[in-house]
């Protein structure tokens, strides 16, 4: 555990809590892609199956359980409790275009051809693209509320900090997880355009982030 990894995990947690509280307090999930949230719930589910097979640390177990609970609670708010506010017309990204290639790739490129390893690999690949329905939705509607932008900022920070974590671990331990690193770089690249918009529009602007 190093400072980059810990800050990355905390940013990830903050992002998930920001989104949950935004929906809970405003009693609305307007502007939020339910599809991205289902994909994230699927990411956590397929990645954390090792909760049942191997114990790593109390920190590891607690964080996994918290991520899972928050992910499913958020999905519950969007599709059940506040489903009237869900904008399914704008959330029109075709997730099968992500799921099929990601599933195929996880069978082809993995560390071991076992069910748990393939599901772990699937979750790593899927996480790298799971935010795309949300970014697509913002592009389609042309704007995002600033709180949604803060959510995306913390998710992006989490990714960037994990890159720093991997650089640190490579230098100090010689640790290098190729699948996680390559997917992580891809995932972080998706946030670069958003980072630019965030700093030029949300921080200087009026509260809403509109796209050109």
């Amino acid at each position: 555990m190093n400072i980059f990894r810990l800050s990355g995990d905390v940013c990830h947690l903050i992002a998930i809590i920001i989104l949950f509280l935004k929906i809970w307090r405003s009693k609305s999930c307007a502007g939020i892609s339910g599809k991205s949230q289902v994909l994230f719930a699927l990411v956590f589910t397929t990645r954390y199956l090792d909760l049942f097979t191997s114990y790593i640390s109390a920190y590891n177990t607690v964080m996994k359980v918290v991520y899972l609970l928050l992910a499913y609670s958020t999905v519950g708010l969007i599709f059940f409790r506040f489903r009237n506010s869900y904008d399914s017309e704008s959330d029109s990204f075709r997730v099968e275009f992500l799921l099929v290639p990601v599933a195929g790739l996880s069978f082809l490129e993995n560390y071991a051809f076992t069910p748990l390893e393939i599901l772990w690999t699937f979750s790593i690949y899927l996480e790298s693209v799971a935010i795309l329905p949300q970014l697509f939705m913002i592009t389609k509607t042309g704007e995002a509320e600033s709180i949604t932008a803060h959510y995306l900022l913390f998710l992006g920070l989490y990714r960037a900090l994990y890159l720093a974590n991997w650089l640190w671990r490579f230098h100090t331990e010689g640790f290098y997880d190729q699948i996680a690193v390559v997917s992580g770089v891809v995932q972080t690249i998706f946030y670069c355009d958003f980072f630019y918009l965030y700093f030029t529009r949300v921080l200087r602007g009026s509260g809403k982030m509109s796209l050109p």
Partner: peptide, 10 residues
């Protein structure tokens, strides 16, 4: 081996 498959990162 065990080490490769043990995932400590979230």
């Amino acid at each position: 081996d065990e080490d490769v498959l043990q995932k400590d990162e979230l």
